[in-house]
């Protein structure tokens, strides 16, 4: 297993209160595999990604019983060893390409610097490598682009530069946090194709964080659904999307406008009433409790057990939906 995470917890400081952003997450990622972590804002998906890279904001507390990349325990690494790993064996792509690139250096400066730092090659070799990678992510006029500054590129081009930067050292694992959310639909499709092609060419493991179930359907091998700091459901793409077992997953899928709706505006979307709660204290009970349409009295008393469904996914629920229920809207 490329990545193994057990009982990951992240606690943030929020106006003097402790905010439990990630509350015991387990993840596995194999080489060449795409795992999508899906959830809405505030569910802890970005904090999970940052915790893996040991890049949490100041004041955040992290704990885990296991946080291993290729057998290396990341939480015990020195800063020095960690930064040798980041960008070389593990890369990350963020949502906003403008803030991830340094505005006062050219694209070429930034790409060469990443490569030289990790490999110690000459500037000319780094230049050749940068052009090669830029072309592999579909950038035309790569040599010209190398001389440009980030603000001279469109959002789609900047995101390609970030992908190129992430791929410079042929990482074994790439963590993508909403890399296409700020982009137009056609650009999104192009960027996702480039990522998937790069992944299959290099057998990279990809951890892909998104709120968009449409994207999940197109790229995921496995899906983990996060809600209020916990993974509530986890399984193959087909199992989770076609027969969701957790009421939250089902609600989330049903709230996406679909072509089958007839589109005349006549059919109402299923929505999930209420808002995501914030957790300041430890609470082992189901986080979806306050909004769940299927809530039972046991849900208010006991932590939900993790069960395996017929379709093969794991679900943390006292009363998981069976395949029949999952299909009816």
């Amino acid at each position: 297993m490329l990545l193994q995470v057990r009982d990951l917890k992240v606690t943030l400081q929020d106006q003097g209160q402790r905010l439990r952003a990630v509350r015991g997450v387990d993840l596995d990622l194999a080489a060449g595999e795409t795992l999508c972590v899906v959830g809405e804002s505030g569910c802890g998906k970005s904090m999970t990604a940052l915790a893996l890279m040991q890049l949490l904001p100041r004041g955040a507390e992290l704990s885990s019983s296991k946080l291993q990349f290729d057998g290396i325990e990341l939480s015990k690494l020195s800063r020095h060893k960690l930064s040798a790993l980041r960008g070389r064996r593990i890369s990350m792509i963020f949502q906003e390409p403008m803030t991830a690139l340094n505005p006062v250096f050219t694209i070429g400066d930034q790409l060469r610097a990443v490569y030289r730092r990790h490999t110690g090659v000459s500037s000319a070799e780094a230049q050749a490598r940068a052009i090669e990678v830029l072309e592999s992510v579909g950038l035309t006029n790569a040599e010209l682009r190398m001389k440009q500054f980030p603000h001279q590129l469109s959002g789609g081009l900047r995101q390609r530069v970030l992908i190129a930067m992430a791929l410079m050292c042929e990482p074994e694992m790439i963590i993508c946090d909403e890399p296409t959310t700020a982009l137009d639909a056609t650009t999104q499709a192009q960027i996702l194709r480039i990522l998937k092609e790069a992944q299959s060419a290099r057998k990279m493991g990809m951890l892909f964080i998104t709120h968009d179930l449409g994207v999940v359907a197109r790229i995921a091998d496995r899906v983990a659904v996060m809600y209020a700091g916990r993974i509530v459901e986890h399984g193959s793409r087909a199992a989770v999307l076609r027969s969701p077992a957790h009421p939250y997953t089902k609600g989330l899928i049903a709230s996406v406008p679909r072509p089958q709706d007839g589109g005349t505006g006549s059919k109402r979307l299923a929505s999930i009433p209420g808002n995501v709660p914030a957790f300041h204290h430890e609470d082992p009970r189901c986080p979806f409790l306050s909004r769940c349409p299927k809530r039972m009295s046991i849900c208010t008393r006991e932590a939900p057990p993790v069960r395996q469904t017929e379709a093969g996914q794991q679900v943390a629920c006292h009363l998981p939906l069976d395949a029949q229920e999952a299909l009816t809207a």
């Binding site: 998937k196 179930l213 449409g214 994207v215 999940v216 359907a217 197109r218 790229i219 087909a238 899928i253």
Partner: peptide, 9 residues
Amino acid sequence: FTPSDESGV
């Protein structure tokens, strides 16, 4: 992209 279409990018 919709959740019911798993046909790849």
